[in-house]
Design a protein around this nucleic acid. Structure first.
Lengths: 109, 109
DNA sequence: GGCGTATATGGCAATATAACCAATTAAGGT
DNA sequence: ACCTTAATTGGTTATATTGCCATATACGCC
């Protein structure tokens, strides 16, 4: 493996690790529609502000979201629309898995 | 959030967590081309067999890969081609991030 | 049956993650 | 300057992940 390959694979793994949490996926899903401030997301997620803030900082650190400060509030938005496509593919995988489960249940019956 | 939404988001997070490791991404990348047995992957990865076997079991557990036993060997393959698309999107994100970094370096100069 | 190769599993130590609370910083309004 | 609201950061505890070693299992061959 070349250094460039190693770098890319590690960068991808970092991004995936940042995505791999229900709360963070939920946040990404909300930001897909529009920009949200931390207090809105805190409300939507239903956890401590500090918890949500840390999740956001994890997403920001790998470049998946951007923040813009306005007065006392911080507005977060998606940094790259590609993540929507990526999560969309996952959705397809999940659906297909469900279909298979249903099919195998039908076979048993 | 409905139960169905919660289920899907957790399913996606489980899959992402399984993907989010350099070695496992590397394995997925190798399986993209063709089926590989554990010993081949062990050789390619350069880690202990037990380590590779555990990575494969993590990938299998979330339904990303399938295994077929043949004699004393076990052949692993991709279970859903969609994961290729998903990792491809990640690649785009990484490239775009690199481009931005290069651009900002150019700005500084 | 006994041996060698291919995988898988259990156990362990090191490290990483996650959630909350508490404390801090930042900006506005009065 | 003081108070309030918004957000971040540090600390702590509980839990999860990772990688290797040692051990077990499975299969083919003699």
């Amino acid at each position: 493996m070349t250094n460039s390959e190693r770098y890319k694979i590690e960068a991808k793994a970092r991004i995936l690790k940042a995505l791999a949490h229900p709360t963070r996926l939920f946040i990404i899903d909300k930001l897909k529609e529009r920009t949200h401030c931390v207090c809105e997301l805190t409300e939507l997620v239903g956890a401590d502000t500090s918890t949500v803030s840390k999740h956001l900082s994890i997403l920001k650190h790998v470049g998946l979201v951007e923040s813009r400060k306005e007065g006392t509030m911080v507005h977060y938005s998606l940094a790259d629309e590609c993540v929507v496509k990526c999560v969309g593919c996952l959705g397809e995988i999940v659906l297909r898995q469900l279909e298979r489960q249903v099919a195998s249940l039908a076979d048993d019956a």
